[in-house]
Design a binder for these strands. Structure first.
Lengths: 151, 151
DNA sequence: TAAATACATTTGTATATACAATTGTTGTAG
DNA sequence: CTACAACAATTGTATATACAAATGTATTTA
């Protein structure tokens, strides 16, 4: 808590709930910047990268926009345009769904797969660096607490 | 970890480093949305709210743009325009610094102070709700681990 | 089966953010 | 004291995000 007050340059006391909220914000900002600096090499935003990984997780089967949105970390409001960007770059394709012409089928292309294969080890390393301040036991606890907080 | 895999709808195993990164992302997204839904009532973004609190922390003395930026949680790239918005709304004022005409002095107005006084209890309550999934001891540990992670 | 409703995505518009280039000011080396 | 570098903020441009309205399709119901 002293560290956090120092970070915020404040003297007043912080309620534990506020301190926690702020700590999560700081931590997220730091991690986001780290990941982004890596992804920038590949001209991808974090959201674009996440969508590519969701599509890869489909193992070839197509997925529609809503299902993508449901699985995204940030429930952002314009997945159409995010997918547009990935199409422009040639990493995904989009077809109108035959069974239900309101829906679209989206799937990752082989250039998209190849890109992910290139990025995978780099991001793995980055994630390890970003979490190297804690040992395995501590990371387990952190994970558990974060998941418990939200549920 | 099982919960996280379920959340991500993935079967493959997650390295602990990646799981932690993703947990922080999820948690942040959830907290951000919660705070934003409260602040929307007052037509403020989270960043605008944070800047107002930074200015209040100055206790009347002015502060320049760079110092604001240093204290912000997200190191965003356009504090000028963020402050412009707050000026438009009448919550802050900006003067050119006498000693160094390159700098600007920014301070909170009394309508700005009044707004914060109104928001304070509402945000306090919201933060307590958002962290109610963990008890005090757990929150302490979570805080400690988050701070340690980044340093 | 025609009209109304719900659904899935797209488009329009406003605001927010990222980054580079520019403006105006100050400090400093020759 | 002039030229040059460093500094602090602003502006321009591109992209990202949020939200509402619109489009086109499918389903329900009267």
């Amino acid at each position: 808590m002293k560290e956090l007050r120092h970070l915020l340059k404040t003297k007043g006391d912080l309620p534990l709930s506020r301190a926690t909220v702020i700590s999560i914000m700081y931590c997220h900002s730091w991690i986001k910047d780290g990941l982004l600096s890596t992804l920038k090499t590949y001209d991808l935003s974090i959201e674009q990268f996440n969508v590519l990984r969701i599509l890869r997780g489909q193992q070839g089967t197509a997925i529609n926009l809503q299902d993508i949105q449901d699985r995204m970390i940030n429930k952002m409001s314009n997945t159409t345009r995010l997918v547009d960007k990935l199409i422009q770059k040639g990493y995904v394709e989009r077809n109108i769904c035959k069974n239900n012409r309101r829906k679209v089928e989206i799937f990752i292309t082989s250039p998209g797969m190849k890109l992910l294969e290139n990025i995978d080890p780099v991001i793995d390393l980055k994630e390890q660096q970003l979490t190297s301040g804690l040992n395995s036991k501590e990371l387990e606890i952190l994970n558990t607490l974060l998941l418990k907080l939200k549920n």
